[in-house]
Design a protein around this nucleic acid. Structure first.
Lengths: 322, 322
DNA sequence: CTGAAAGCGCTTACAG
DNA sequence: CTGAAAGCGCTTACAG
């Protein structure tokens, strides 16, 4: 029994011949160790959890895809948890005691934890890696959202725009900090250009296509309406473009639009956007987590590069006879 | 010990007072039963697996999202498996012995199984539900792909088109049958209209935006080029539209394009498409699986409705002086 | 290098 | 209605 266990797991102190015999017989019976029994005895589950706010959004689906591929190639199974709304999030946080027994580590995607929640999760013996958000004492994979957003907005400023709107998220959404960083970047670029931010030009878009559409509709009703918009995601940006066109206006003639992500379809829509390496970030986070589980420290904060991709959805401010 | 177990799981034969005391104390200690230990003793894992070809594709991400929500609300955890390429698929199929111990049931998304693979999976004691593909002896959630595709192509025929191309998948991809049904629908509609299918007008698009772009580029090089295209997914259709425009041609003026799915962005791109209830199918499949695990038979084959959504990417064939 | 023993944390008959 | 006992299938010291 014990020898079989050692032989199959490649542990030392097994005679080569014995090991070969065991492997052969195991193969013949297509024997597989029961993962629950081995976790119970050994403590390792060989699976990791991933907490994702919303699977339906492009960004999250890509991060999951990237992480899954890496986890797969290292033999880890992936357990998926939703933490989108407050109730899910609460339930997820409350079950950390169990989670420590279910998975060897946890990938948190855009999930902002309080200090005491962090303490709980550590006491559950979980290895953690954060994607999107960064924490002092946790390995993380992020981009510099504030700087990237500022670059996008500066691009609009350089085209002569002064009325630059922001399509973002409700500030009630305290659970996520990424939108707040992007908002800061927007403010930074406006401040540099000596532009006072107008509260009317800041509208939530819920990070969906439909939300972006509604937000833009609302913005077009302003007097005067903005001549440029920075949307915090490509999906919202695409919704915004549609709204502009449905109002009989032109992109970028009447309104310039910048997004964030470089969605698969951004190129198709000729959308100017901030490209971030999404799949890659998921993969990188998975690698960091696997290293942490394996007992290797690893670089704590990995800040990935972003790049402004200028396409045809942005153009110079139309000179109006004022 | 035994009483605590019964009390916490709501089993009968526990005095109300005892149960209350147990619950109170469990709460105080924030005790959670170890899921591995209980699976080992009881056999139930309270988690289900989901086999998905590719997470990055819109369709799959939505199906997963729909299933996850339902599973969550019934207290099941979701284990995600990739079966995209041949190697992953083989590995997945080979581990069925273990899978039966890891999960209570399995959701197969667009995964075509051979007869002997089906036998194996049944002998592993797994409950199965299929999404996309249908099997005689398995509950499934599908749409009538053949009929839906035929309706899309008939729409093109009714607009006067005769040279109607198909952007689909390599026929080497034997693992999936959905593309083949859609191809049959294309053939059906052509046959009804007395149009002979031209092999040159059938091009693989790999179900990606970039693949659709390449496919369309290839089609535009035909002499004569098609005046209409049916793409098996909206992502390919959108890539195709972009290719048409990059060649200085107009949609639908020069080429009409129909997609399949009703992607979030199809509306934005004014894409005519076949709508299918994607999230809902995922949710429905999860429900069927939960019922199967619970020992309730449930309706075996659930064929969900589709609907042709006509937008501005299709129009009458331009009358050329021939 | 090998195998007998104890134990991981539960659940399920079974006796009381 | 309650609790002692056996067992789920492994792994890890520990003797040999």
């Amino acid at each position: 029994m014990a020898t079989v266990s050692r032989a199959l797991r490649g542990l030392p102190n097994v005679a080569p011949i014995t090991r070969a015999k065991v492997q052969l017989e195991a193969e013949r019976l297509s024997y597989r160790p029961d993962p629950h029994a081995s976790r119970l005895a050994a403590g390792r589950t060989h699976s990791v959890g991933m907490a994702v706010p919303e699977l339906g959004r492009w960004y999250f689906s890509q991060v999951v895809a990237g992480a899954r591929d890496t986890l797969y190639s290292h033999g880890y199974d992936l357990l998926l948890f939703g933490v989108g709304n407050g109730e899910e999030r609460r339930r997820f946080v409350r079950q950390w005691g169990v989670l420590g027994k279910r998975v060897d580590g946890l990938l948190l995607v855009d999930l902002r934890l309080d200090t005491d929640e962090l303490v709980d999760v550590h006491s559950a013996g979980l290895h953690l890696v954060s994607v999107g958000d960064s924490y002092d004492n946790l390995p993380s994979v992020t981009v510099d959202n504030r700087r990237a957003a500022a670059i996008a907005v500066r691009h609009l400023v350089s085209l002569g725009h002064r009325l630059i709107a922001l399509i973002g998220e409700d500030d009630h959404q305290r659970h996520f900090s990424v939108p707040q960083f992007r908002r800061c970047g927007w403010l930074d670029a406006l401040a540099e250009a000596g532009i006072a931010p107008h509260p009317e030009l800041e509208v939530p878009g819920n990070f969906t296509v439909a939300g972006g559409y509604c937000a833009m509709t609302q913005l077009l009703a302003c007097t005067p309406p903005p001549t440029a918009v920075f949307a915090m995601s490509d999906e919202m940006a695409m919704g915004a473009i549609k709204a502009v066109r449905d109002h009989g206006l032109d992109v970028p003639g009447d309104v310039s639009v910048v997004g964030f992500d470089d969605h698969d379809l951004a190129h198709i829509m000729d959308l100017t956007t901030v490209r971030q390496p999404v799949i890659d970030s998921g993969a990188r986070a998975a690698t960091l987590l696997i290293e942490a589980i394996g007992g290797h420290p690893g670089a704590p904060h990995d800040i990935r590069p972003t790049e402004l991709i200028v396409r045809a959805s942005t153009g110079p401010r139309r000179t109006v006879t004022e």
